[in-house]
Design a protein around this nucleic acid. Structure first.
Lengths: 170, 170
DNA sequence: TATTGTTATACTCTATAACTATA
DNA sequence: TATAGTTATAGAGTATAACAATA
């Protein structure tokens, strides 16, 4: 297996660093103006999008990578009055999460600043066909990743004395 | 201030989700094969790149967003023998961080799998001119973000009873 | 048995503030 | 006084495993 070409390395690291910087700005804005984390913002946005109501499992999808992580975040949002949880009529095992009016208000309050950050940080340096190209490429990449098996396929879960002659950190 | 166009929203969310998924995969791979976090990997990679030695401040740049955060990570890498820290001859206040042979070995051990993930997740769905376009766009975005003032310019730090009639979460 | 969700727990990581030491 | 780094501490977030309940 060969190394990545320089162009690939450049693209990869530029992508990762740019998004890291963007995320940091976005989290600052959300925290400052709505006391929300990026994850919490995404959960609210998803709910608002999905006509206000989703099951825990559907809500988690792509945002949070563990069941308990979502329970934790949903509990925070619930405690803050941004969301309510109740049993599903269809499936007694399922929990339906509903965005409240307060949740919608907070989302509306936070959105202008959020958009401002995205515009200033991400879109400002783009020109010409950059936007459609970026959108097209990242949409394809995202859909590709969503389709990938969640890493159970390569179950090198617990590494243990794996031929390496030096011990790994921490 | 107007809302983002749909094309902008699509690009923004696709970008954020794709990179989130990519990051998650990358962290799994680094953890499994080298017991490294993404931050730690970046620090080692930077050192290896910079002929092996950097001051704490230079090392932190763009990777970690607080002084203490870097001290913490550097201490972990040091404890694991991947890095050594010592005083700088030029400036007695400064700490020089040096990658060890063990650090280089670990980096080399981890890199093939890392590249494989990047290839499978990010580059696989690209075709034609996608790569140079993505590289070009993200390089420009990254450089733009690096140049932005670190958010001290808009000191809405502590929000306090700011006209909002409902209390924010947590 | 498989699935949905919660809980308990342990751990990683981050950030703020106070502090030391050098420039 | 400003800068480089460390330390103490507190808090947010995550993941694993054990658990309960329903399908």
């Amino acid at each position: 297996m060969a190394a990545l070409e320089p162009a690939q390395l450049n693209a990869y690291f530029a992508l990762m660093e740019a998004v890291s910087l963007l995320q940091h700005r976005v989290e600052q804005q959300l925290r400052a103006e709505g006391d929300l984390s990026w994850v919490q913002f995404q959960l609210l946005a998803r709910l608002a999008d999905a006509d206000g109501e989703l099951s825990m499992t559907d809500l988690a999808d792509g945002v949070v990578y563990s069941r308990s992580g979502l329970t934790y975040q949903a509990a925070l949002l619930d405690k803050a009055g941004l969301v309510r949880r109740g049993p599903s009529p269809d499936d007694e095992r399922s929990t339906l999460v509903t965005i409240t009016d307060q949740g919608r208000e907070l989302l509306a309050r936070v959105l202008p600043g959020h958009i401002e950050v995205a515009r200033d940080m991400l879109f400002a340096p783009l020109s010409g066909d950059d936007l459609p190209q970026l959108g097209d490429i990242m949409t394809r990449v995202r859909d590709h990743m969503r389709a990938q098996p969640p890493r159970s396929a390569a179950p090198r879960r617990r590494r243990s004395r794996d031929g390496g002659q030096d011990q790994p950190p921490r």
